[in-house]
Nucleic acid binder design. Structure first.
Length: 606
RNA sequence: GGCCCCGUAGUUCAGCUGAAUAGAACGUCAGAUUCCGGAUCUGGAAGUCGUGGGUUUGAAUCCCGCCGGGGUCACCA
C-alpha cells in the first residue's frame, strides 16, 4: 500500500467511519463490516452535510430504520466533536458537521505546499505509461490528440498519487506503411523536401502516403477492369509488390533504402517535435520499433524452438490461442519479416529490463483490444511472470459528423490545424471582450494560446475514455458552460481579486479564525475542496482524467455562485473578509493544480 | 457469425463499487451589472435512463434475453 496522505487525518468521512466501527458494537453488541457503512454527501434539499444510509445496518440493530438512525445519530453527536447536529429522514441519517471543522481544514490545506498531491518518494513503485505511439508516415490528427492528452494526463494523475512514472513513446518507424510513403516519394516526389516546399516535414511525408493509396487504388481498379477479381487485384497490384520488396530490402539493410528511410523519418520527427511542443506533451523515454523488433523476432524464434509456437510449411510462425477462446495469430511472416505484434513482444522485454516497472500501461485505441489480449497471452505463454502487469488503457474513437476519420484518404482533422483554429477562436472572443488592454502583443498571444488549448483539452478530457466521441469542428467547442475557459475564467477572476486587494493595501493573512460561522456557499466550496485528494485517488485508480475534469467544473461553478452572492473585499467584518480571501486562495490553488493534472494551464487574466 | 465496448433531456455529457424527487452544459424562453471581472449568476420548459425479464427492502447502476450503434476476428498497424 502507498503511504497515508497527510490530509487524511482531516478527512471527515474517515473520522465518522472510525467512530461507527467503534460505536455500533457498543450500541448493538455486534461488530460491523466496513462495507455496510455507507456514507454519502447529503442531498441539497436536506439539512446536513454527510448522510449515513442506515438500511444495511438494520440487520445488526434489529430495529426500525428511523429508530436506528436516531440511536446512531445520538451516539455520533455525543462521541464525535465534528458532528454538531443530525436528523433522520426515512432510512437516512443526515449529519451536520460544524463550521469549525471546515475552517480548520482550510488552515490545514493552506499549510500544505501541494494540497491533494502526494510526494513521490524514493521507494515508490514505478509505472511505465506508453502513449502517443505515432506512425512516421503521416502527421498527427485529432485521434492522436485524444491519445496524447489522455496519456499525458494519466501520467500526471498517477504521479500525483505518489508513484514514479516513466512517460514513454513507441515510435512506429518501420513496416510496410512507412515504406509506402517512401516509395511514393521516390517515384513522384521529384526531390521535394521540407525546405524546398516550405511544408512541415510530417505533412510532406503524409502527402505521399495519401498519394500511394491513390495510385494503388487506380492500379487495383485497372486490374479489376481487365477481368481479375478484387481480392486478386489487391494482392497483385504492382505497387504493392514493389513496396513489399522495399520492406524486405529495409529488413536486410539495403543502404539506399535505409538512407531514404532515415531522411524521411528525420523530416517527420522535426514536425512531430513541433506539434508535441505546442500540445505540451513530453516523454522521458522514446523507443523506436526499429530498435526493438529484432528482440521480439529472437524471442519468437526461441519460443518456436521450445515448442511454444508452431511453424507452418510456408515458414510463417504462429501461436495457437484457440484454447483461450481466441484464434491462431501470426507472429512472423513466411518471408521472415516481422509483424506488428513481433515488436511489441520485444519492446515489452526491453522496457522491463530497463526500468523494472510494477505496471506497464498502454494508452491505445479500443480498435486494438484484441491485439492486447493476444500480447498478454503470448508473453504469458513465453513464461514472463510480469505479463499480467500489462494494462491496456483502451479509449474510444473520435469520429467526425460525417463518420470515421481516414488518414489514407486525407479525411482527418489535422492536429496542427485544430490548434490554430482554437487559438484563433480564443483571440476573436477575447478581443471582443477587451479585458486585456495594456498587455503587450506577446502577452496577449500567450493568453490566447492558453485559452484555445484549454478549450480543446478540456473538451476531450471531460469525456469518459471508454466512450466514443463525435467531434464537430464548428459546433463542438464552446467557451461557455462546462468548458475549459469557464474554469480558467474562474481562476483569472480570483487572481484579479488578489490584485485588487494588493492595490488597496490589503494583505492576506496566513490563517483564518476558526470561530466564524460559514454561509452555505462558503461551506459548499470547502466541502467540495475537501474531496480533492479523494478525486485524484479515484482518477488514478481508474485511469480516468474525466473525473478530475468534471470535478474542476463543479468547484468552479460553486465558487462562481459564492462570488456572485457575497463580496470579499467589501466585507466589513475583517475576520470574515480574511476567511473569504483564504478560501479564494485555496480555490485558486486547487483549480490550478487540478487543471495542471489535465495538462491545462490557467491564466492570471483573460 | 464468435468475442469486446457503448445506448441517460433536441444536442454534448455526468451519475454506473445499488439508496431519498436522475444532474449539468449547449440550445430555447424569462430575468440579474450604479457594487471585488456579465467568458458570470438566477429561474422556466425539456427524460417511459434503448427494450423485456430477473436479483433486492431499494436498480440508470448488478445478472440474463432482445433491439440499435461501434470495434475486432489480416502474413495491416
Amino acid at each position: 500500500m502507498w503511504p497515508v496522505h497527510e490530509g487524511c487525518c482531516m478527512n471527515i468521512e474517515e473520522i465518522i467511519n472510525q467512530a461507527l466501527i467503534a460505536g455500533i458494537p457498543q450500541l448493538y453488541g455486534k461488530p460491523v463490516s466496513s462495507d455496510s457503512i455507507q456514507l454519502q454527501k447529503t442531498k441539497r434539499e436536506f439539512e446536513g452535510d454527510i448522510t449515513l444510509v442506515v438500511f444495511p445496518l438494520l440487520g445488526i440493530s434489529r430495529k426500525a430504520p428511523e429508530i436506528t438512525g436516531q440511536e446512531i445519530g445520538t451516539y455520533l453527536q455525543e462521541h464525535v466533536r465534528e458532528v454538531v447536529a443530525f436528523n433522520v429522514v426515512k432510512g437516512f441519517l443526515n449529519l451536520s458537521i460544524g463550521d469549525r471543522f471546515y475552517l480548520e481544514f482550510l488552515n490545514h490545506a493552506l499549510d500544505e505546499e501541494n494540497f491533494g498531491i502526494m510526494p513521490v518518494c524514493e521507494a515508490a513503485e514505478t509505472v511505465m505509461i506508453e502513449y502517443s505511439s505515432p506512425n512516421t508516415n503521416k502527421p498527427l490528427h485529432l485521434g492522436h490528440i485524444r491519445n496524447n492528452l489522455l496519456g499525458c494526463s494519466v501520467c500526471n494523475i498517477i504521479e500525483a498519487t505518489g508513484k514514479k512514472v516513466v512517460r514513454t513513446n513507441l515510435v512506429n518507424d518501420r513496416g510496410i506503411h512507412i515504406c509506402k510513403s517512401m516509395l511514393a516519394w521516390q517515384k513522384w516526389g521529384g526531390g521535394e523536401t521540407p525546405e524546398s516546399s516550405g511544408k512541415k516535414g510530417d505533412h510532406l511525408v503524409g502527402d505521399y502516403y495519401v498519394k500511394f493509396d491513390q495510385y494503388y487504388k487506380q492500379e487495383v481498379s485497372g486490374l479489376i477492369e481487365s477481368g481479375i477479381s478484387r481480392e486478386e487485384a489487391e494482392k497483385k497490384a504492382p505497387l504493392l509488390l514493389e513496396v513489399q520488396e522495399m520492406l524486405r530490402k529495409w529488413e536486410f539493410g539495403d543502404p539506399s533504402v535505409i538512407a531514404l528511410w532515415k531522411t524521411m523519418n528525420e523530416w517527420v520527427y522535426i514536425g512531430f517535435t513541433e506539434t508535441y511542443r505546442r500540445l505540451g506533451i513530453t516523454f522521458d523515454k522514446i523507443y523506436y520499433e526499429s530498435d526493438t523488433y529484432l528482440v521480439g523476432r529472437d524471442t519468437v524464434l526461441e519460443g518456436l524452438k521450445n515448442g511454444i509456437f508452431r511453424q507452418h510449411p510456408d515458414g510463417s510462425v504462429w501461436v495457437d490461442l484457440t484454447a483461450e477462446g481466441l484464434d491462431e495469430k501470426v507472429l512472423l511472416r513466411a518471408d521472415g519479416t516481422s509483424v506488428y505484434i513481433t515488436q511489441d513482444i520485444g519492446t515489452a522485454q526491453v522496457r522491463k529490463n530497463e526500468y523494472h516497472p510494477s505496471r506497464m500501461v498502454y494508452v491505445v485505441g479500443n480498435e486494438q483490444n484484441y491485439h492486447f489480449r493476444v500480447l498478454r497471452l503470448v508473453l504469458d505463454k513465453l513464461g514472463f511472470p510480469w505479463a499480467k502487469t500489462l494494462y491496456h488503457l483502451s479509449y474510444g474513437m473520435v469520429e467526425l459528423p460525417e463518420g470515421k476519420m481516414k488518414s489514407r484518404e486525407g479525411k482527418v482533422v489535422d492536429a496542427d490545424d485544430l490548434m490554430d483554429e482554437m487559438i484563433n477562436t480564443a483571440r476573436e472572443m477575447s478581443s471582443g471582450l477587451g479585458k486585456l488592454e495594456g498587455l503587450s502583443p506577446g502577452e496577449k498571444e500567450e493568453i490566447f494560446r492558453i485559452i484555445g488549448l484549454g478549450a480543446l483539452k478540456y473538451f476531450i478530457l471531460k469525456v469518459d475514455p471508454v466512450k466514443n466521441m463525435t467531434f464537430n469542428p464548428r459546433e463542438s467547442i464552446d467557451f461557455d458552460g462546462n468548458t475549459g475557459p469557464f474554469i480558467q475564467y474562474t481562476h483569472a477572476r480570483i487572481r484579479s481579486v488578489f490584485r485588487k486587494a494588493g492595490e488597496n493595501g490589503m494583505t492576506i493573512p496566513e490563517k483564518t479564525r476558526i470561530d466564524l460561522s460559514l454561509n452555505e456557499k462558503e461551506k459548499n466550496i470547502l466541502k467540495m475542496i475537501h474531496d480533492f485528494p479523494l478525486v485524484i485517488k479515484d482518477a488514478g485508480q481508474s485511469f480516468n482524467p474525466s473525473l478530475i475534469a468534471n470535478y474542476m467544473y463543479d468547484v468552479a461553478r460553486e465558487y462562481n455562485q459564492f462570488y456572485h452572492d457575497y463580496s470579499i473585499l467589501k466585507e466589513a467584518d475583517s475576520g470574515i473578509k480574511d476567511m473569504r480571501l483564504l478560501l479564494s486562495v485555496l480555490a485558486s490553488k486547487v483549480i490550478k493544480k487540478g487543471m495542471g493534472l489535465l495538462g491545462i494551464e490557467v491564466p492570471e487574466r483573460m
